[in-house]
Amino acid sequence: MAFSAFASTPAAAGPVVRRRSWIALVLLLPGILYLLLFFITPLISLVFTSFQQPVINGDIGQYSAGFQWSNYTDSVVQYLPLILRAFGYALLATLLALVISYPLAYFIGVKVRGFPLVQSLLLTLVIAPFFISFLLRTLAWKQIMSDEGPIVVGLKALSIFPSDGHITGTPFAVIFGLTYNFIPFMTLPLYATLERLDVRFIEAGNDLYASPFTTFRKITVPLSLPGIVSGTLLTFIPAAGDYINASGDFLGSAQTSMVGNAIESNFLVTQNYPVAAALSIVLMAVILIIVGFYVRRAGTEDLI
């Protein structure tokens, strides 16, 4: 009797599974529609734009459909330094953000674990910059680091800085701005992983003759790898495409232009839509390749 009850289960399970998948489909529908409408459609449009050719004797910004592959080769050749700079800056900013965020996230997630109130307060402070617009914060930094600002004036008064020195417009200012603006994106995923880190593994490491540094390297870092991967991705991807920090209106100058600035000026200033679209797609492709390699290297199969 007991066995016949078991035997009937698979038959009964059939409709249940089908109904579940139907519900799942309904729940997924808004997301699918959203992606179709706001991701796939513009992406296809962008691909078409990237192959357009100028209309002979037409107005500025007038293009017709075509298959002009040279849009890609020309723009890559012309903007290669900006593309390389974008990835170089983004990489540096990501590393800096990681170095700053890891101890911060470790402190909030592990050290003050027993004090939820302190934890929430510190987390609020991490997120607090989001309460002010990204543009305003970056502008504020421009003022602080401007030639008349306290930092430059102070450094010059102490003769540490040459009298014609600037901070704004330098790679330093841009990387600083990128690091500053993306630190919360690094801290929060790191916190989420470290908060769940079982300190008994650290104790076990210490018990097995590993010094605190070795325990950190061999136990803590590998166990927090999911947070490191998501934090670096959330920082690196937007930083590589950022055009605010590197813009001459904010912390950068013509010498610090990144590929985002080239895309912006081609789209909005010179109205060279095909080049801007081609650059966007190149940027996207390169990021996809880098991220693909990175995630594979970090190895999800190594994470439990």
């Binding site: 079982d198 008994r200 593994f201 104790e203 076990a204 490491g205 210490n206 018990d207 097995l208 003759y209 590993a210 010094s211 605190p212 325990t215 136990i219 590998p222 166990l223 790898l225 190594d302 994470l303 439990i304």
Partner: peptide, 20 residues
């Protein structure tokens, strides 16, 4: 002395085997 310097090993209640 610190834990890692002692000639002592522990079998933990939770085992604490490194999952990675």
């Amino acid at each position: 002395t610190k834990s890692f310097q002692r000639p002592v090993n522990t079998v933990f209640q939770s085992y604490a085997l490194f999952p990675h």
